[in-house]
């Protein structure tokens, strides 16, 4: 156990990196797709709708496989880690689209009308009036998404990214102790998720103050 512990800690760091980078990518994609769905013309709206529907309608594992194993066939060669970040990012982006869209819709429509009446352009109204209010409503559901994303990072072990799950599998090969290795990995996941959960609820409390 002591011999493998440093490798598990290193792998936990990889898992954390994956979660953070893919969440950032997902947030960006989600923000773009949500604004396309809400404010875009027919073309952008349809693209965003298809993106959300296809990604949410198929398993993340398949999406990762298409990107990593299928990608080279159409000239996309990615190393496992990048494929993991991009694949997970595209996946969570679809879910974040709906979260962000939901929060923006939840802001009272009178706010938009009032801002427009005061002479702000549509873009200014969204940026200065709607988004700051919507951001508050997003924190909690986005926290749920992030929590799910940390657990979803385990999937990248299937495309040979050396994350926690992969490391557990690797050391089972040399120690023949699957139970202990999986439990060790599980404990580290728990620590990461519990800490993130605490950060999210702290953030939520802060923005909830009216």
């Amino acid at each position: 156990m002591q011999r493998v512990a440093p490798f598990f800690l290193e792998a936990a760091w990889v898992t954390l990196e994956l979660a953070v980078l893919s969440t950032l990518l997902g947030l960006t994609l989600g923000a773009i797709a949500a604004s396309a769905k809400l404010y875009g013309n027919v073309v952008f709206r349809s693209i965003a709708t298809v993106y959300v529907s296809v990604i949410r309608g198929t398993p993340c594992l398949i999406q990762l496989f298409i990107l990593y194993f299928g990608g080279p066939q159409i000239g996309i060669n990615l190393d496992p880690f990048s494929a993991g970040v991009i694949g997970l990012g595209i996946n969570i982006g679809a879910y974040m689209t709906e979260t962000i869209r939901g929060a923006i819709i939840a802001v009272d429509s009178g706010q938009m009308e009032a801002a427009r009446t005061l002479g702000l352009s549509k873009f200014q109204a969204v940026r200065k009036v709607i988004l700051p209010q919507a951001a508050r409503l997003m924190v909690r559901p986005l926290g749920v998404n992030i929590n799910a994303q940390i657990k979803a990072t385990a999937l990248v072990s299937a495309i040979s990214v050396v994350d926690l799950t992969y490391t557990a599998q690797r050391y089972i090969g040399s120690t023949y102790k699957p139970f202990e290795m999986f439990i060790l990995a599980g404990v580290l996941y728990m620590v990461i998720i519990t800490l993130t959960g605490m950060i999210v609820s702290w953030l939520n409390k802060r923005v909830a103050i009216q």
Partner: peptide
Amino acid sequence: TTPLLLQLFLIYFGL
């Protein structure tokens, strides 16, 4: 608080 994949591994390979 743990990934489903890990739970499946634990049930199938660990037990």
